[in-house]
């Protein structure tokens, strides 16, 4: 009930004579709203920071991520020269975390990108064409849905053999069905909107309609969903490496590092937890950013 009331209160606002100043463009107003959201700004800054230390790892550390020292094994946090301590073979953990982020982020973002392209295409196709095209695509996706995502990923990895490429491919396949479903739902919704019908009624071709009316309205929700998938993807890909199905040692990768430091949990619990903290923080940031994007993209919440 109270929702309806809020509605009344808001609806009366635009009824007044409109002011003369032209409104900013859609993406510009999304940007303005993002800038007014402190949480999104903070998590975006944190993600930029994480990107900087991983891509620019040589700038923030001089150590070699592969070179260990038997004498410096499992040093605690705050050790001179190793401010985040060292791992079980005496490699500098800060350096390993920085370099490890490269593979972790790659293994997390690439599958989402694959599913965004493939799943987005299939979903828009299914949603816009409807009929038997829709039935074939959506029923096929339902088959994949029958398996829990981590099981499916493990099964595909098991089939393809372990390694980074295969773990990326496996996760890409895992994310395609949910992406198709989201894309299909929003496309179906926007297809039946009156303005799409109006465009059809004025003789606009299907391709033009998809380009001008459907894509613009579908892309937003899909991008938001993809951002939230990255947070899941980080955890899943780390999980695969943890199980030994993804990146192989001695490559630095957060999931793999978590696995190898697992034995040291009673010796250096804080050090052992650090890769996990990185996974958690990064995943959380992507999740919060997707929330911020979602509300900034909502046209009706303008003001």
């Amino acid at each position: 009930m109270s929702d309806a009331t809020i509605d009344t209160a808001q609806r009366v606002l635009p009824a007044a004579d409109a002011p003369a100043a032209p409104a900013p463009g859609y993406w510009k107003s999304v940007g303005q709203r993002l800038l007014r959201d402190p949480v999104t700004i903070i998590v975006t800054l944190m993600l930029i920071g994480i990107l900087f230390i991983t891509l620019g790892a040589p700038l923030v550390t001089n150590a070699d991520p592969y070179a260990g020292s038997v004498l410096a094994r499992l040093k605690p946090i705050g050790t001179p020269g190793h401010w985040l301590g060292t791992d079980e073979t005496g490699r500098d953990l800060w350096t390993r975390l920085c370099y490890g982020g490269r593979l972790s982020l790659l293994a997390a973002i690439l599958p989402v990108t694959i599913s965004l392209v493939v799943g987005g295409f299939l979903g828009i196709l299914a949603g816009y064409s409807g009929g038997w095209v829709n039935t074939i695509i959506m029923r096929t996706m339902d088959v994949f849905y029958a398996f829990p995502s981590i099981l499916l990923a493990v099964a595909i990895c098991g089939m393809l053999g372990n390694g980074l490429t295969n773990s990326i491919l496996a996760l890409g396949v895992v994310f395609i069905p949910p992406m198709v479903r989201v894309a299909e739902t929003v496309t179906t919704q926007s297809r039946s909107l009156d303005f799409v019908e109006a465009a059809r009624a004025s003789g606009t071709t299907t391709l033009q309609i998809i380009r001008h009316h459907v894509l613009a309205n579908v892309l937003g929700p899909i991008l938001v969903y993809a951002t939230s998938l990255i947070s899941v993807s980080i955890i899943l890909s780390a999980g695969l490496s943890f199980l030994g199905l993804g990146v192989t040692p001695p490559e630095p990768e957060w999931g793999l590092m978590l696995n190898s430091l697992r034995q040291a949990i009673y010796v250096q619990p804080y050090v052992a937890a650090l890769p996990g903290v990185m996974i958690f923080v990064t995943s959380m940031c992507f999740n919060l950013m997707s929330d911020g994007l979602r509300s900034a993209m909502d046209v009706r919440l303008n003001k």
Binding site: A23, Y26, L193, D194, F195, E197, A198, A199, S202, G203, T204, T205, Q208, H212, H213, A216, N217, V299
Partner: peptide
């Protein structure tokens, strides 16, 4: 719902003629 929320009024009106 019969107007594209991402288009200005002039864009919406000019759309069909431009497509033609």
């Amino acid at each position: 719902t019969s107007l594209n929320p991402r288009m200005t009024m002039a864009e919406s009106i000019a759309y069909a003629p431009r497509m033609h």
